[in-house]
Design a protein around this nucleic acid. Structure first.
Lengths: 196, 196
DNA sequence: TAGATTGTTAATCGATTAACAATC
DNA sequence: TAGATTGTTAATCGATTAACAATC
């Protein structure tokens, strides 16, 4: 969120500086939180002065690895998988330094194998090991039905993938050392309905 | 998460009962947490016995309002909006008691207005007030570009919508009494890249 | 009655906030 | 030097966990 603020803020107007107060207000957190967070990430900021916008922005980009190009695969070429694919491809077309590169798509449905989203072909899931290795894919996005998700994730892990973003509505098991994040659309929708 | 466990667990095998230990294990939380949560929601559960699966399931469904049918609109018929539309329509086709009903889609692009996703037509965003009122839409999903999001949300709020799920990467303002949830895909992707 | 498991209180832990000394 | 704002410690707050009495 800090990075997003730093990217949208007008540098010139404030001599290239921003205080924890202003940054906090724009990011929706307290100034104390801002200082604690930024100090934890490294000693940017100068007492009595504030934080240099440009320098801090670059620091955060680097901390978040946004300055490295990362090859990502999407498993599941249903409507969600396709939407995610278009998102990444589209974003990369607009921002030339967007850090994600969609290297491959996978699906188990023979009708989908051979299709292309943009320039990126859909392969059969059986080829996950082969193609992710070949294309040096480090990150996978899982957008398959719940009952297929664990199998897919196991294949990804075996193929050496280090980070997984899971959209399937199941708790998945991954070995130590592999990062797993979950975003569960159906839970979000339920959560919202709770307040009606 | 508890509800999801209760929906997938085999009732017959355990005499229709489940303990906080088992429920916690399957949901990925401690037994103490389970008991605290379920007790907060209402005094289900019997000492020395456990929780009745079927009864607890129905209770949770009712607490989460999953037993009420809710009309939802999606604003933004780009690839994400379409994917979400297909998700809701598809889920409703499979589970006849799925609680969400996609009542309308909106977009500002004249090329998209008039399109249909399944049976559901895409209207121009200017018609949000008119159509959401007419179709008794209580919930909106926002899947438009960041710069359009606040305007769209304002229109939804004015039209009396009570809950909004926002996919645009911006902090939005809504008046007291309107529920706003955010799921930010680009933040998820950044977060994951952080660990590489 | 004995065993099990909840409901609930007390203890622990971690995260957030407030405060202030350090220093630019 | 005076004013500003950070870095950092101490105080507060809330959430999680452990423990146990209540009770089925």
């Amino acid at each position: 969120m800090y990075l997003r603020v730093l990217e949208t803020v007008d540098e010139d107007v404030r001599g290239g500086l921003i205080s924890s107060f202003e940054l906090g207000e724009k990011a929706g957190v307290t100034p104390a939180q801002v200082r604690k967070d930024l100090n934890f990430l490294g000693g940017f900021g100068k007492q009595g002065v504030g934080y240099q916008i440009a320098a801090l922005r670059d620091e955060l980009r680097s901390v978040l690895n946004l300055d490295k190009e990362i090859n990502v695969a999407i498993v599941g070429a249903g409507s969600l998988g396709q939407a995610l694919a278009r998102y990444i491809i589209g974003r990369r077309a607009v921002e030339k330094d967007y850090h994600l590169r969609l290297a491959a798509l996978f699906d188990s449905d023979p009708a989908k194998v051979g299709m292309k989203i943009g320039e990126v072909p859909v392969h059969h899931v059986d080829r996950i090991p082969e193609i992710t290795r070949e294309r040096q894919v480090r990150m996978a996005i899982v957008a398959v039905p719940a009952q297929a998700a664990q199998r897919v994730v196991d294949a990804c892990v075996d193929a050496g993938i280090e980070a997984i973003l899971n959209f399937a509505p199941v708790k998945l098991k991954v070995p130590e050392g592999v990062r797993l994040h979950n975003t569960d659309l159906s839970v979000e929708l339920m959560h919202l309905a709770y307040y009606l």
